[in-house]
Amino acid sequence: MKYICSICGFVYDEEKEGVPFSELPSDRVCPACGAEKAMSDPVKENMPQSSVAEDISSDNSHDMEKLSSGALSLLFSNLARGCEKQYRPHEQKMYQEIADFFSAEAKKEKAEGDLVSLVNDNLAGVYKTAEASATAAGDRGALRARLWSYKVEMIARTLLSRYEKEGEKMLENTSVWVCSVCGFVYIGDSAPALCPVCKVPSWKFEKVE
């Protein structure tokens, strides 16, 4: 039997490895992307497409004035990046100034709560509803962005739970890398040759100091 990692597609072949997947330790992570063991699924012939939740929230209000300062900050910093890519440095600077203003506004309020449970709640909640509505509408752009974000989030969850168990030992004498394109986080001495999520080469990774 073969097992495939649902984050990056790494295949564990029981025949070649000589150890059944079920006998691998429960804290085993994918050697390619660091995803936890439970993220790998058995490979079946003609795997059926998993069906998506059919329930879509009926609340369709999306009044932009209701966006929080933190969300506005992300929205405007992205528009600044858009200007950069269109070679419009002046507009880029001004959009970034607006993004920084909202970021500072958002940081005035103390961020409360537990990051692990927030991540878990989001994975079980907003990611599911966003997938359902984008699937129903056949919106490929939204589906792509949601999927990358979801994969990156699953890795974040794994790293957070590893840190809870292993503490500082997990990060001693090694580096933390972030893919500058999709946000995939990797722990290791050097960045992976290819980003497991969005497939850009290693030079797109930034080392976090």
Binding site: S57, A106, A130
Partner: peptide, 17 residues
């Protein structure tokens, strides 16, 4: 509209994280 609602809820979630 449904996609916008879903993605904006996700945007708020990412902001909180």
């Amino acid at each position: 509209d449904e996609v916008l609602t879903g993605m904006r809820a996700l945007l708020e979630a990412k902001s909180r994280e």
